[in-house]
Design a protein around this nucleic acid. Structure first.
Lengths: 195, 195
DNA sequence: CCAAATATGTCAACATGGCTGACATATTGA
DNA sequence: TCAATATGTCAGCCATGTTGACATATTTGG
């Protein structure tokens, strides 16, 4: 093992008991624990709505990207149509997300969060943003920039650009479907659901 | 929303198009994508053995903490006994992990990776360590320290110390059950399985 | 020494959220 | 008008989390 990164002879004082590889293994473990706690609080809230983490992802990306199409959502989440359909249907049936026929191409379904959906999305995001802000504060000066660079670099090369585009400069604020929008484009005319 | 962290008026040039909250939301998303790719390569290898990510976790922590007891493993993974039993049994039945009766307390089962188990654990760890090393290289000077601090800070306060103890200064190297060990303490005398 | 506590194993049953493959519908565009 | 496209839907499988109950071996304390 340890042949990808031979232990540096000049092991620094900090973490003197660990080799370079050991530090990276520790990082892998930290990532596991950190991610678990990162998702823990939202999961607890979602449970009260009968939702799971999959619902969170859908709700989040729709909220942050109003008008998102189903095909794009599949591409972002990299799950199958069936996996998405299950949770998306629940979010639509319970009034957290609405869909409208695409104004140009009527085959398309544009997804939007309702007021209720936006509120939940923000509640969940707040939990994670607070935790991130606190963690960066604890980690000290410059940790946020370094961490963002690190996280981006952890993403497979062929998707980095796509993710970067997705995560930057979006029209995120207060974008839930309003009453007047619903008049313009009745979502019931689109739905194939009978209930 | 955005009331937890009001947007700083002095938004720096870097990422000038994003508010502070937006940058944190971007971090949340990056964490999702990064974690997915972080687990992607090991998952693909595990599939060839008929294993999943749950097996990886068990194998990993047993490999890195030879002699680990079941109760401790439950505490680390924070899953139920049944969830662990399912994957652990498979790992034992297929010869990746063995268990021995505790030398002091014979109720205990100490877990060890076999040579085969150690090899797989290292293969999987190598994939993740390589990715981490490359990401830190890409992210530039000091990213590793900052990221480790960040990840630790992301872990819930009440578990941080425990995790820190777990991830530092372990007797990790080449610790698989050897032939002579098996003579000292026959694992078959412990098993309640008939097959 | 026996009884309670402990460590582990095991069972049935259930939920979530991945997956496949097939097929239906509406709509667009050549 | 017909092929391609975007979406919806169905049946069923798998992995991995959950609960609660119960069995067994072993240790330990009164």
């Amino acid at each position: 093992m340890a042949d990808i990164l031979t232990d540096t002879p000049e092991t620094p004082d900090l973490d003197a008991c660990q080799s370079e590889t050991d530090r990276l293994v520790a990082c892998a473990e930290l990532l596991f624990f950190a991610y678990r706690d990162f998702t823990g609080e939202p999961d607890a809230v979602l449970e009260q709505y009968g939702f799971g983490r999959a619902h969170h992802r859908v709700l989040h990306f729709v909220y942050r990207n109003p008008g998102l199409r189903v095909a794009r959502l599949l591409d972002i989440l990299k799950i199958t149509k069936q996996s998405l359909a299950r949770v998306l249907k629940q979010l639509i049936d319970t009034g957290f997300i609405i869909q409208r026929t695409g104004p140009q191409d009527r085959r398309e379904r544009q997804l939007f969060t309702t007021e209720k959906g936006s509120a939940l999305a923000e509640t969940l995001t707040n939990l994670q943003v607070k935790r991130l802000a606190q963690a960066f504060a604890d980690a000290g000066e410059g940790a946020d920039k370094a961490t963002r660079d690190f996280l981006l670099a952890m993403i497979s090369q062929d998707q980095r650009q796509d993710v970067e585009r997705l995560t930057r400069c979006r029209d995120h604020a207060k974008n839930h479907a309003s009453e007047k929008d619903m008049l313009d484009n009745d979502p019931t005319s689109v739905s194939t659901n009978k209930d």
